Each structure stands twice: as C-alpha cells, then as structure tokens.
Computed example of a mutant assay.
Amino acid sequence: MSATHRRPSRFARLLVLAAAACVAPTAAHTAPAPPAAEDRDRDLGSIDGILDRLYGAISGPAGPRDWDAFRTLFAPGARLIPTVRRPGEPAAARVLTPDEFVEASAPRLKEEGFFEREVARRVDRFGAMAHVFSTYESRHAKDDAKPFSRGINSIQLLDDGRRWWVVTIFWDAERAGTTIPPEYLPRQE
C-alpha cells in the first residue's frame, strides 16, 4: 500500500478515540442526576407540577425562601434571563445562573412579600422538550387586589424520561406601550 492509503497506526487510532472521548461524554457528564423518589412524588413528572413548584419556590411573604428546593428544579447549565430596560438604551438580556438569581433575589425577598402566579399558559412540545409561554402576575401580598407587575415567562423545559427540568427562563414585563396580547391572557368566559 502507498503511504496515503495506509491504515492508521494503532497509536493514531488511540489518539482519535481519546480525542473523541474528551468531546463526546460532555452531555453524559452534565446530564441531570436521577431524581430522588421524593422529587417524583412532588409531581416533577408533569409540566403542571414543575411550573407549580417553580412559582411556589419564589412566592411567599417577606422572609427566606427554600432556595435548595428552587435549585433542584434546574438542569445543569440552566439560565434565568430577565429583560433589562434602562432609559435611553435598547433592551438587553441579563443572563444569570440559578445561584446568581438567588444571590440577586434573596435579600429583597427577605424584606418584601412577593407572590407570582401564572394566569395563562401556552405550551408547545416536541420530543423531550417543551416551550411554555407562562403569563404571570406579581403581587406584594397574596390578597392584593391588583398586581404590581405582569409579564410573560418564556420557559424551556427538558423531559429526561423521569421528570421535567427547567433549562431556561427568559422573561419580560408589561409596560407602557407594550401590553400582553390577548392570546396570552386568560380566556374570558
């Protein structure tokens, strides 16, 4: 055989396998750990269940939250992304890890009540992924007559066959000139 058609040496084949091993396992190493039985019992096996837990984890009267329970909702590498608006500047995305979100939110939630609830939902699903447009209302007290804020959470979820995981939450709030369209609000009966 000529040099250009020779089989790769055993050493060259090992180098290729080693290089592939460095790249291929990334997904396996970052895959979420199997849930504890108690997590499955709390209904993380459904979109309804994980969204109930998500809203429940951040909502409550002034005081600490169960941030460990909050963190169990997220897949490794998950992101929370609020839309940020500053006067005179274009809209921007502030990308946070769940831990960075906790660090930014915990002091304020210790001082102020915050109750966020879903009022409408639109779900698109394919295979192991789901995209949820979840319209929310935020109040300082559970029984406040009017919300102080409304908006839409764009939530991407992963179903690993055992439970749902939050991959990304990207949200924007309603404001003057930008109101929530009727198709994302509760249906009037």
Rank of each mutant, 00 (worst) to 15 (best):
A128V: 09
P98R: 14
A128N: 08
R163Q: 15
P82M: 11
V102C: 09
D159N: 14
A141M: 05
W165H: 15
R163M: 13
L157F: 04
G88H: 14
D99I: 05
S154W: 01
F74V: 04
M129C: 12
I81G: 10
E137L: 03
R79H: 12
P147Q: 06
R79P: 00
G88I: 03
L109K: 10
P87V: 14
R125C: 15
R139H: 11
A106C: 11
A92C: 07
S138K: 10
S134K: 06
R79N: 14
S134F: 00
L80C: 07
T72D: 06
Q156K: 05
R139N: 04
R94C: 08
S154G: 13
K146F: 02
P107T: 15
R108H: 07
V166A: 04
F74M: 07
Y136M: 02
D159G: 09
R108K: 14
K110G: 13
G161H: 11
G88K: 15
P107L: 14
A106Y: 02
E137M: 01
R163V: 10
R79M: 12
K110L: 14
P90W: 05
V119N: 01
F126P: 15
R94V: 02
G161T: 05
R125G: 10
A93T: 02
V102W: 01
T135F: 02
R162K: 15
V123D: 09
R85N: 12
R121Y: 01
T72W: 00
R122C: 02
A104L: 15
R71Q: 13
V84N: 07
R108M: 13
E103M: 08
F101P: 01
V123M: 05
R139T: 03
F70L: 08
I169Y: 02
T168H: 09
R139Y: 07
H131A: 09
V102N: 04
E137C: 03
R163I: 04
D143T: 09
P147L: 03
L109Y: 04
R79A: 08
L73A: 03
I169S: 05
Q156A: 11
F133A: 13
T168S: 12
V166F: 07
R79L: 10
P76G: 06
K146V: 05
R162Q: 14
T97H: 03
T97E: 04
F74P: 11
P82C: 03
L158S: 10
E100A: 15
S134N: 01
I169W: 00
L80A: 05
A104F: 03
R85E: 13
A93E: 12
P98V: 13
V84A: 05
F114K: 09
S134M: 04
E100I: 14
R150P: 09
E137N: 08
L109I: 09
F74T: 15
T168M: 13
S138I: 04
P98T: 10
R86W: 03
F115N: 03
W164Y: 08
L157G: 10
K142E: 15
F148A: 07
L109D: 09
T168P: 01
L80D: 01
V132Y: 01
F126I: 13
E111R: 13
T83Y: 00
P98D: 04
A75M: 07
K146W: 00
A145R: 08
R117C: 06
I81T: 06
